[in-house]
Nucleic acid binder design. Structure first.
Length: 1079
RNA sequence: GGGCCUAUAGCUCAGCCGGCUAGAGCGCACGACUGAUAAUCGUGAGGUCAGAGGUUCGAGUCCUCUUAGGCCCA
């Protein structure tokens, strides 16, 4: 570009020129304007971010996003659901990947004629929000929240939720993610909550909403349950007292005292023991302990731990055979009637630690709770919400269960009665509250559940019908999860969430589930200020029994909020019934793989419960974005890349293209600046370079594509090849995008742009600077125009900014009637008649011949600027190669090409690999080597055809690496032979060739000087030259040719003061050149 | 502890239904080109296809086990 700028006007002028061009030329072209505008020259070095900002302003000014939706109204619907992010944290790199994928397919479908609505959404409720607020006000735990004031707390949550919305908006916009952020759905709105209530009531009416217990990690100090994520933060290695307790069998087979042994690291759960669990298929051994005179049941696999010398195994049984055996309780506290203190079976028991027999206390373990429930064993809970024993535990009432002393005393109590087999301090990782450091306990609290297990089969069937990408999610991660489904624990004992709409009578226990505001109004006679706590909890009414209906205190799991979005984003069924029938189910959703048990599940569960159908048809599951070392990005490691910073540095197109082309999106992938920069250089910059090239010459010539008609049949082979390549590309990209495979589409585009730039344009450059406007030049311009215009459209969904830039400058400047944005265009359609497969294959042959030729020049160390006389190519490829003779000749700078048989130009020789032959035949090597040199043509042909030849009675084998054929040229030059062909290059230099080499050398030096001083390509100049007599003679003898190429007006032989003077080494001879502009 | 995924050149990735001597880009070294030029072209070095078994005429590819990493869940 720099040579375009007159040196004296300098860079600032150039910048002003560009800026003016940007704002006046293509974008000023309003819809009414019918005159074609001039194409704008492109600054290939423009910062990507500046270019993209320009495009963003253009989209904004012309409402392109809105129009892209409007113009497709009435077309087939492509339904996209936005999984709502939370705006109370900054977006990270993973969100970039998600947003790119969510953008690409809707853009593509829009261009294919589909109508796509893209409603943004915000996930606003949940514990993370509450924790942020707790931090802000320096409070912690439910007691302090109550003291702080629930109303004040809720208000603070509401404010905190949109804290980072502006950053999200900025990231979304700069990334080019088209989504309607002005009309988003928000889970905190009353409309949204009301829809969620409707769904809950629908579920309730089917009898699928029930109350039960749930065992959760629980902090007895904060009096709250913790999520698994919180638990994972607080593991610490601690030493706890562990005990192997003896449970006496009530009806021993002999009168020897017999016990089940069970090991626990939480002695405080033993007072609540109600059963023992064994694995039904495991073998258990009954050990007779000789010295104690007692017998113990333990898993057969564990018996070595318990056998003392002299002991013996008297019996073995399977776990199933032990089922139902009753034992004497360790403590007398469990008074409730029912099945208790018996052996039950469960497949979760293992023989990998302890005794292979597990003590069960249903309130303090999830498995314990489940197994007891399955076997109909009684439920007891002797620990209160503050972690202290209840009065039933008479010996330890009021004592904190996690105190070491309490546990020691419990063990002592047992030991005193002979019920301890063994005890020791056991070191293990135990979870602690990340807030207050209190050891957590697993603790059963009242919870509400959705009976998802009731529709398990339907959910599985629905999930199977979905197109999961990658496919293995369907039967793998997601399929397994559904197979092991448990009821959905819906309630949370928290504040900031959708209130569970269940009211219970404080007298008779009557229940009501409310499914709308109208229903609440009719029951209670009034509505709260809003549907959140604490306001909603003020709404009560009189029960038929005379008691008061009060709402249960819980809010619901935020996953139910987001899973409700197909309904609640439309405030269905209270509004938009028509829209809902149009926008359900989704054709396409995409989120990261961690949403398998999150959003993918909650959407499916709610939709299946309410409609019986799957809520989505195609799900693209994304992998995680990792740092350069393949580690998870986290603030503490300091390896986080801020997406906005990355966009600032490389531009959104580069980021988008990196994520699209790097790997299939479900693989986890690394993300770092260098990788993005590379992606930018290999595709975005290359494409922009081609654009700049076209713009430069099209503007110089005032080329107007619409003014010319030239059917492909009348264009050069090179043009027809590019068009074949282009239409083949259209077909492949379309197929890939249709299959949600943007990765393949991106790679195909990249390969095409590489070919376009490094072969078609590079090979055809001089066609564009030919004088006049002959047919060949028109063909070159038209073909490049069509390629750029088509690539812009094909690439528009992937890299929307540069695609728009090219479209505006190349297409819109030429055709004022074209749609105002590339994103309003139809996706290109391949013309099969242009896809000439033969031509594509032939060009491969040509490129291979050229590559061999370049290799030979390299081998011979003769620079390309030195013309050579002859290139030999295979006779059997003559028909093809002859068609491209000018291309090959020009690329390799040879005077002519001869098509010959290999025999005619080369002599094959058998060349022994002495090392291999030595290993095989030892000291015969010298003899064999002589024989090889004397090998007859028959012997050589035998080796060539069969891979083996006999020399002096020894088999010389190609597959053993004994020998290879080497070809010696029969002419003065070099040769390369490959299985697919050969090339020979005559390196003999005649005086004429040498002289011509000098001419090219001189021209090259002069062009370099023109460029160095930034002359315009069309400026005429004056050169002065002095130096070696031979060079000077050649310069003068070929003056006309040189002057025409370098645009020399006059040659001075005396030294001259010019803009630049340089001393050159021209093939070893001295030449001093000065240059100045002509007049 | 369970489930799922991944493992191919120094790095990032292709490699179809099992079938030529396992490829590309980047990086590195060397050379070329020079009217797109902070661009471009070529050559070279660099591989125990994570490891071990198995199926097969033939395995990077299919099966089993092991190892390492990632994710989800306990």
């Amino acid at each position: 570009m720099h040579q375009l700028v007159p040196a004296r006007d300098g860079f600032l002028f150039y910048v002003r020129f560009c800026v003016a061009a940007v704002f006046r030329r293509p974008f000023a072209a309003s819809e009414e304007r019918s005159q074609a505008t001039m194409i704008r020259r492109v600054d290939a070095k423009e910062r990507a971010r500046d270019r993209e900002q320009r495009i963003l302003e253009f989209w904004e000014a012309h409402q392109v996003f809105q129009k892209s939706e409007e113009i497709r109204r009435g077309g087939p619907e492509f339904v996209f659901y936005e999984g709502p992010p939370t705006a109370n944290g900054r977006p990270h790199s993973g969100h970039v990947l998600t947003r790119v994928m969510k953008d690409v397919y809707p853009r593509y479908k829009t261009m294919k004629g589909y109508h796509v609505e893209r409603k943004a959404g915000w996930d606003t409720h949940g514990l993370p929000v509450e924790i942020e607020v707790e931090k802000k006000f320096g409070i912690s735990g439910k007691k302090q929240i109550e003291k702080f004031g629930v109303e004040r707390f809720i208000e603070a949550c509401r404010e905190s939720v949109f804290q980072y919305e502006a950053v999200w908006r900025e990231m979304t916009a700069k990334l080019g993610y088209w989504v309607d952020l002005d009309h988003p759905y928000m889970t905190l709105s009353d409309d949204y909550i009301e829809s969620v209530w409707y769904l809950l009531k629908t579920i309730y009416d089917q009898g699928y909403l029930y109350q039960g217990h749930r065992v959760s990690p629980y902090c007895p100090h904060c009096e709250t349950t913790l999520s698994s994520h919180e638990v994972a933060q607080g593991y610490k290695d601690v030493k706890d007292l562990s005990v192997t307790a003896k449970f006496r069998v009530l009806a021993p087979p002999a009168d020897v005292p017999t016990f089940f042994l069970a090991w626990t690291t939480t002695p405080w759960t033993l007072p609540s023991n109600v059963a023992l669990a064994v694995h039904p298929e495991l073998r258990y051994a009954l050990i007779h302990a000789a010295d104690r005179g007692e017998r113990y049941w333990v898993a057969d696999d564990r018996k070595a731990q318990f056998l003392q010398p002299g002991d013996e195994v008297v019996e073995t049984k399977t776990g199933a055979e032990l089922l139902g055996i009753a034992y004497e309780p360790l403590f007398p506290y469990v008074q409730v009637e029912g099945r208790k203190h018996i052996v039950v079976t469960s497949s979760h028991v293992t023989a990998e630690s302890g005794t292979g027999i597990v003590h069960l206390a249903p309130a303090f373990g999830e498995e314990d709770y489940r197994v007891c429930k399955e076997h109909g064993v009684v439920y007891v809970n002797f620990v209160d919400l503050s972690g202290r024993f209840t009065p039933e535990v008479t010996d330890f009432a009021g004592r904190f269960v996690k105190d070491e002393e309490t546990n020691v005393d419990i063990v002592k109590h047992l030991a005193a009665r002979g019920l301890v087999y063994e005890k020791h301090k056991h070191e293990h990782a135990y979870p602690h509250c990340w807030r207050c450091d209190t050891p957590l306990i697993y603790y059963a609290i009242d919870s509400w559940f959705v009976r998802t297990t009731a529709v398990k089969d339907l959910m599985i069937a629905n999930a199977k019908a979905v197109n999961w990408m990658p496919e293995h999610i369907r039967d793998g991660r997601f399929g397994n999860f559904l197979e092991n489904m448990v009821d959905w624990n819906l309630s949370r004992s928290r504040y900031w969430g959708t209130p569970l709409p269940i009211w219970v009578c404080d007298q008779c226990g009557e229940r009501a589930c409310i499914g709308s505001k109208a229903e609440l109004q009719s029951k209670a006679g009034r509505l709260p200020k809003e549907l959140h706590k604490p306001y909603i909890d003020d709404i009560t009414w009189r029960c038929a029994c005379g008691g008061t209906m009060r709402r249960v205190p819980e809010v619901i799991d935020v996953w139910f909020d987001s899973g409700s979005m197909p309904f609640a984003q439309l405030h269905y069924p209270f509004e938009n019934q028509e829209a809902f029938s149009r926008l359900f189910p989704a054709d396409f959703i995409s989120e990261a793989v961690d949403q398998t048990r999150g959003w993918f599940y909650s959407l499916l569960a709610i939709s299946t419960l309410v409609t019986g159908k799957a809520p989505y048809k195609n799900v693209l599951v994304l992998g995680h974005v990792l740092d350069e070392q393949g580690k998870k990005m986290s603030k503490s490691k300091g390896n986080v890349i801020d997406p906005l910073e990355a966009i600032e540095m490389h531009g959104a197109d580069a980021l988008r293209f990196y994520f699209l082309s790097n790997t299939q999106p479900w693989n986890s992938q690394r993300f770092y600046h260098k990788a993005v920069a590379e992606s930018k250089a290999k595709f975005i910059d290359l494409l922009q370079n081609v654009h700049a090239f076209y713009a430069l010459y099209a503007s110089l010539d005032g080329f107007a594509p619409s003014a010319h008609q030239l059917p492909p049949a009348k264009r050069s082979l090179m043009d027809r090849w590019l068009l074949a390549r282009l239409h083949d590309l259209i077909r492949r990209v379309d197929t890939a995008m249709e299959a949600y495979d943007a990765t393949t589409a991106a790679r195909l585009l990249q390969d095409f742009v590489t070919d376009l730039s490094t072969w078609y344009v590079r090979r055809g450059r001089e066609r564009y600077w030919a004088s006049g406007m002959g047919d060949d030049k028109v063909a070159a311009f038209l073909t490049l125009y069509e390629a750029l215009a088509t690539v812009a459209k094909l690439a528009a969904p992937l890299v929307p900014f540069i695609a728009e830039d090219i479209y505006q400058n190349v297409v819109r400047s030429a055709d004022p009637h074209a749609p105002i944005s590339v994103h309003l265009c139809d996706f290109p359609q391949a013309d099969p008649s242009l896809i000439d497969e033969t031509l594509l294959a032939e060009m491969d042959l040509v490129i291979r011949a050229v590559e061999m030729g370049r290799y030979l020049r390299n081998e011979a160390k003769i620079k390309t600027r030195q013309p050579l006389s002859v290139l030999y190519l295979p006779k059997d490829q003559e028909a093809v190669l002859r068609k491209f003779e000018d291309v090959i000749q020009d690329e390799l700078n040879v005077k002519r090409i001869e098509y010959v048989h290999l025999d005619a130009i080369a002599k094959p020789e058998l060349y022994l690999n002495l090392r291999a032959v030595g290993q095989a035949y030892g000291k015969l090597v010298p003899v064999l080597n002589e024989a090889a040199k004397r090998a007859t043509p028959e012997q050589i042909r035998a080796f060539l055809e069969t891979g083996v030849v006999e020399l002096e009675g020894c088999a010389i084998r190609a597959d053993e690496g004994h020998a290879e054929l080497r070809y010696h040229p029969k002419f003065a030059g070099v040769i390369q032979v490959t299985p697919r062909g050969f090339a020979g290059l005559c390196t003999e230099l005649t005086p004429e060739l040498i002289e011509e080499g000098y001419v090219r050398e001189i021209i090259s030096k002069m062009q370099m000087m023109r460029k160095e001083v930034n002359y315009n390509v069309t400026d005429r100049v004056v050169f002065s030259a002095q130096g070696d007599a031979e060079v000077m003679r050649i310069l003068q003898d070929h003056y006309d040719e040189i002057a025409a190429t370098v645009l020399i007006e006059r040659l001075e032989l005396e030294p001259m003061a010019g803009d630049l003077t340089k001393e050159w080494d021209v093939n070893g001879k001295r030449l001093t050149l000065s240059v100045r502009k002509g007049g």
